[in-house]
Design a protein around this nucleic acid. Structure first.
Length: 182
DNA sequence: CTTAAGTGTCTTT
DNA sequence: AAAGACACTTAAG
């Protein structure tokens, strides 16, 4: 089987940077947020440690096309305006290439049941899915590799506080403020 | 407020 | 195969 070729693109914006992995048809399979100098190391580590035999480590060759450019523009809008994440998500294609069965089950739930402007808790997610414990749900959220598009930032503790976020608690708080404020 | 116990899954060794 | 990490919750001081 031939491995799928992927490209990574650093998206520079005022508030923050993002790094997206996009295939030749403009399909997104990875998005991290933060500062670019840490993001490149992060994406390499994520792909190297994951079991993804059908995918190559993403490269940053200067190959592009209209589909890729169009997807990049949508992602930049998401980074600039988090309150539009859900509507923007419907305008692009993404593919979940990471994760175990359980993790994917949790991620699908987040997309389908936690819309922008709302939050949930790890225990609620666990209960809704029949997952064994809140901690299990939390672990699955933390394994998400498509930031924003899969809204793991909308899941909080049972007390409504921010326990952790892959890209920093401050960033999670900022996202939620922008989303809820609308 | 802090601590401790119980918890399931995934990663690392 | 075993140990350790972890984005959890609840109860008890």
């Amino acid at each position: 089987m031939r491995s799928k070729r992927l490209y990574y693109w650093v998206l520079h914006l005022k508030a923050q940077d993002g790094l997206a992995v996009i295939d030749q048809k403009g399909v997104v399979s990875y998005l991290s947020i933060g500062r670019w100098n840490t993001l490149v190391d992060l994406v390499k580590r994520d792909f190297r440690t994951a079991k993804m035999e059908n995918y190559l480590l993403p490269g940053n060759e200067k190959v592009t096309n209209d589909s890729i450019e169009s997807t990049k523009r949508v992602l930049e809008q998401m980074l600039d305006n988090p309150s539009e994440i859900d509507s923007l998500r419907r305008t692009i294609n993404y593919e979940v290439i990471f994760g175990t069965e359980l993790q994917r089950k949790v991620w699908t739930y987040l997309v389908d049941h936690i819309p922008v402007g709302t939050t949930s808790s790890y225990s609620e997610v666990a209960k809704a899915l029949g997952v064994k414990s809140a901690r299990v749900a939390g672990n699955a959220c933390g394994a998400n590799r498509i930031a924003l598009i899969i809204p793991c930032h909308r899941v909080l503790t049972a007390q409504g506080t921010i326990n952790g976020y892959r890209y920093g608690k401050d960033e999670k708080e900022r996202l939620l403020q922008l989303e809820v404020k609308k």
